[in-house]
Amino acid sequence: MTDDPFAGAPDAPPQGLAFLELGERLRQRGQHAAAATVALSGLAHYPTVADAHDLLARVRADQGDDSAASRAWYAALECDPDHVGARKGLAFVAFRSRDFAAAERHLDIAAMQAPHDITILNALDRLRGLQPARAPVGTVRLTDPAGGVLLFDMQGMRLAGSVREVADVSLADAAAAEGAGLVREAARVARMLDLGTVRHVVMETADAKIAMLPVSRDGALLIYRSSATPLGRLLGLAGDAARAARDWMGSSS
């Protein structure tokens, strides 16, 4: 028997999910190679456990391999789309590469999953403090499936983007269909109450703030953010997204 409780552990078959704790302790001790071996060994037996991918991602991030870390965190999200740790990790990687908009987006989604996690809300505040109040147009990516920006036509067909995840195509299609109905209803209300041309409709739920705004006669946007997002910032993003959408529709037609 050895004094080192972890001696030989990386080569031993994982016993249940205990490898998660073992790998994390190895990672915290700076034994990244051993921690990676434990994580990979565990994943070989439990490939659908999001926490195992999360462990591997954290090890890769510690090793400075952000690309591998991102892949592992996205794998974690495929196993569990609501995995907060993976979102925080992706935000960290994006922040490290100075992609603040992506970092904010991932933290925003994490805040939807864990609205009372003060560490996420504080990180969001710090991140927003580093950026201009209104993000430049280039940060809006209509084709980013996790961008929370959905562009649809007036027949209710999805043109680009998604509500949340790439796997949620049916959710995005349903949102597009209902979004078109909302555009028509908003236009009717605005016309009958003499409110003028519709600029936007903002909807707030317990978990989310959503903006709908027409971008042309042929299309409209839905912007989905967590309830922690300031309303003015949501509308700023919506305006940028509308410009990006007009460019996109112009270039795709």
């Binding site: 509500v163 949340r164 959710l171 349903a174 949102a175 269909a177 209902e178 979004g179 109905g181 909302l182 209803e185 908003a186 209300v189 605005a190 109450l193 003499d194 409110l195 003028g196 041309t197 519709v198 600029r199 936007h200 409709v201 903002v202 909807m203 707030e204 739920t205 317990a206 978990d207 989310a208 959503i210 709908m212 839905l222 989905y224």
Partner: peptide, 26 residues
């Protein structure tokens, strides 16, 4: 309509809805 939209987005029930036009708002 807003409730149908938030439901389709799996975002829960709406608590507020603001329609802002260039001459007024509801």
């Amino acid at each position: 309509r807003v409730a149908r939209c938030t439901s389709a987005m799996d975002a829960g029930l709406p608590q507020t809805a603001y329609l802002v036009g260039d001459r007024g708002a509801l």
